[in-house]
Design a protein around this nucleic acid. Structure first.
Length: 709
RNA sequence: GCCCUCAUGGCGGAAUGGCAGACGCUACGGACUUAAAAUCCGUUGACCGAAAGGUCGUGUGGGUUCGAAUCCCACUGGGGGCACCA
């Protein structure tokens, strides 16, 4: 089995997130996944007889983020798999301990989770010594402590950790308060046990009942305790990660083979450069063996390897799918290179990836693994950047069409959705069904679909028209075959064309947002493109060229709109705000409708602006306008800032922040002229009459606000 | 339980401190047509009003500001992630 030591990169994977232009939510998911915790490791001596060859008393090391609560540690818990369990367990407890360990081993992770409310465990019969106060405390094993995190052992502080609290209550163990709220310093709490009457006191505060750190606030108490432990040689500051090392072996045929050979003792050696790349052997039967042996063990000839007269055996595990996705973006830069995975000059030119558009489902696996590989390659000086993906955007999922459900009780009565909890999809013989639990009767409720016509929206959500007391559940679901709500793009393309389909998807809303599909809305984009064609090319009888280009001068307002459109579409595409870019093009096109003819330069500019969004029709228009070749090679149009502005401007006038009138003034008016015009406006005057003007606010080119009293 | 994120018309959304609802869909009215489709023109947040105009309005309650969908605090609801991580 091969593992990749990703934990060695935990700190850098965390820290370097700061330099990436990624969505904050996604960075946060990676931070949580890496799960860095600062705390201390503390050694507890175990109260067992020393073995003949042991110098010191054996110890169990625990990890805690709250070293300040050491005085409150009243027992210790080891993960059932902890290697010292056998040593600690006393003969009279052995049977119980073994039974519990077997029981845990049988439990799946899911069961372990489901039982998390009810703590289980057994006493080992052994004791440890709390290094703070030299008290002997009992050692338990319990499945709420996991071998995979920290040291696989904890000091239990039931007064200040809810899980320990639950366990202590269940097993009748002492609960000692060692932290009190800060207010305790000024107005002491007479009975500290009242803090923990219901549950653990997990907040920060000040240390109490803790000798040398008494009175210190939690942050300082943690520091001080770490120093004390260090001085005593029984502990030190420590950082732990939730992130685990990465099991990198698979027992499958399809996967990259490891370029590793093993000698008869099992020592691993890597292949020489001139033996790479290592290819999978061609074999007849590549199905799994049904045993732990990987399928590659069946390739008997391939397995044998000799170097310098010594015989080796090839590694037969293969790499997981991730192996490819961790570096494909590098190989794409130089895919035919026979001597290296990438040419250094090409790598330096192209990397890092400027923009990565992908789904949020890759937030913690692919995107973390790829960053890890990249950092390893960076450290080995194969790539020039510490991070592979500079900017990342998560496109939102397109959901199925909106669906409305009412819930039915088992007896058939209709139940309002307000009464339903744990609404979820369940698989039934007739496909996926929406199900819920009644908050009143705890009965199972079944959802039945109702049509849009049967419901109405009210202030209190969607209601059934027939009975407004019934709230209807409204949501759109992930498209899935089993739900039967999948929209096949092929049929949309067949009916409306690829350009319309693309435009519709972009026009639905912001790229990052989850959006419900609505087939009804597609026709809008189809009408838009048809209208563009009519305005720039002409009627259907036209088979080549266009009948719409003419020499009639463009009205000034449309000229202005043209320049605004060039500016806005450019900016919006840059910002990946495709929906608003399309809206601006629609606006310009609407202005063209009804014009006798359109100047050639406008037609050409429109085709260029449309090209990134609806390339097929844009290219066709480009050709009809008399050009050869693709407009993908034509420079993006530029706008004239002088043509963006009107000679007049319309300004809203507010009185006390409320819109009262609009005035039209020359665009170059100074503040005094604007304010004078504003105060003279017909619908403003009555609001000023008999009042004193306190303040006049003019936001240049935007609005006027007059404050009166 | 913890963390993140979102909430705007009948629907998708626009506006990130300055005219709320751009643009599209739907619906309604009109033009063209023998008719339909397509197309074109208009209306479409709620309430009051004949009109001019007014009042209310961006999940709820408070705050900051001349001015808040936008910033701050609390809450409610939806979506996502993690979940006995000591």
């Amino acid at each position: 089995q091969w593992m990749l030591r990703i934990t060695a990169y935990g700190d850098r994977l965390l820290k370097d997130l700061d330099m990436l232009a990624w969505p904050d939510s996604l960075k946060e998911m990676q931070r949580n996944w890496i799960g860095r915790s600062i705390g201390a490791e503390v050694d507890f001596e175990i109260d067992v007889p020393k073995l003949p060859d042991e110098q010191d008393q054996p110890i169990v090391t625990v990890f805690t983020t709250r070293p300040d609560t050491l005085y409150g540690a009243t027992y210790m818990v080891l993960a059932p798999e902890h290697p010292l369990v056998d040593r600690i367990t006393s003969p009279e407890h052995k049977a119980q301990v073994d039974a519990y360990r077997q029981q845990v081993a049988r439990k799946s992770d899911r069961d372990r989770l489901a039982d998390s409310k009810q703590k289980t465990g057994v006493f080992t019969g052994g004791h440890a010594v709390n290094p703070a106060n030299d008290q002997k405390i009992p050692i338990y094993i319990a499945d709420y402590v996991m071998m995979g995190y920290g040291t696989g052992a904890i000091m239990a502080v039931p007064a200040h950790d809810q899980r320990d609290y639950d366990f202590a209550k269940a097993f009748g163990l002492p609960i000692n308060v060692v932290v009190a709220p800060v207010s305790h310093l000024t107005s002491p709490i007479s009975d500290l046990n009242s803090l923990i009457a219901q549950h653990a006191f997990e907040e920060e505060g000040v240390a109490v009942n803790s000798d040398e750190i008494n009175g210190l606030p939690t942050a300082q108490a943690k520091e001080e305790m770490a120093v004390l432990l260090d001085a005593e040689g029984v502990g030190h500051r420590s950082v732990k990660f939730k992130l685990r090392d990465w099991l990198f072996s698979r027992q499958r045929y399809w996967g990259e083979p490891f370029p590793i050979v093993l000698d008869e003792k099992g020592n691993a050696f890597s292949l020489q450069d001139d033996e790479l790349p290592l290819m999978l052997p061609e074999i007849e039967d590549f199905k799994p063996t049904g045993t732990p042996e990987p399928p590659l063990t069946k390739a008997k000839d391939w397995l044998k390897y000799e170097r310098d007269g010594r015989s080796f055996k090839r590694e037969t595990n293969t790499m997981p799918q991730w192996a490819g996705s961790c570096w494909y973006y590098l190989r794409y830069i130089d895919p035919t290179n026979e001597t290296a995975f990438i040419d250094k000059a090409k790598e330096a030119y192209w990397m890092p990836v400027d923009l990565y558009v992908g789904g949020v489902e890759h937030a913690v696996l692919h995107l973390l693994y790829a960053r890890f590989w990249h950092k390893v390659l960076f450290d080995l000086d194969h790539v020039s950047t510490p991070e592979p993906f500079q900017r990342l955007v998560n496109q939102g999922l397109i959901l199925g069409e909106m669906e409305y459900h009412v819930f039915h009780a088992p007896d058939g009565t209709v139940v309002t959705a307000s009464e339903a909890r744990d609404i979820a999809e369940e698989a039934t013989p007739d496909g996926l069904r929406l199900c819920a639990i009644s908050t009143k009767t705890a009965q199972r409720l079944e959802g039945k679909r109702v049509s849009e016509e049967e419901i109405e929206k009210t202030a209190n959500g969607f209601r059934l028209k027939a009975d407004p007391n019934i709230r209807v559940d409204a949501r759109s679901f992930k498209m899935s075959k089993s739900r039967g709500n999948v929209v096949n793009p092929d049929s949309i393309v067949a009916e409306y064309g690829a350009d319309t389909f693309r435009l519709y998807e972009m026009y639905m809303g912001p790229l990052e947002a989850q959006k419900p599909w609505n087939t009804r809305d597609i026709v809008g984009m189809s009408r838009f493109l048809n209208s563009v064609w009519r305005n720039l090319v002409g009627g259907e009888e036209q088979t080549t060229g266009t009948s719409r280009m003419g020499s009639v001068a463009l009205p000034e307002a449309i000229e202005r709109q043209l320049h605004r459109t060039i500016k806005k579409v450019g900016q919006d595409i840059e910002a990946m705000s495709f929906n608003t870019a399309i809206a601006e093009l629609i606006k310009l096109n609407n202005e063209l409708t009804g014009l006798e003819s359109v100047p050639q330069y406008l037609g050409e500019t429109f085709a260029l602006l449309l090209a990134p969004l609806a390339p097929h029709i844009a290219e066709e228009i480009w050709h009809r306008l008399g050009h050869e070749g693709s407009l993908a090679r034509i420079p993006w149009p530029s706008y004239d800032p002088a043509k963006l502005v009107d000679t007049d401007m319309e300004l809203p006038v507010q009185v006390n922040g409320r819109l009262r009138d609009k005035i039209t003034v020359p665009a170059d008016s100074d503040e005094a002229a604007v304010l004078a015009a504003a105060e003279a406006a017909t619908n403003v005057k009555p609001w000023l009459a008999g009042k004193a003007i306190v303040k006049r606010i003019y936001v240049a080119g935007k609005l006027v606000n007059i404050v009166v009293k």
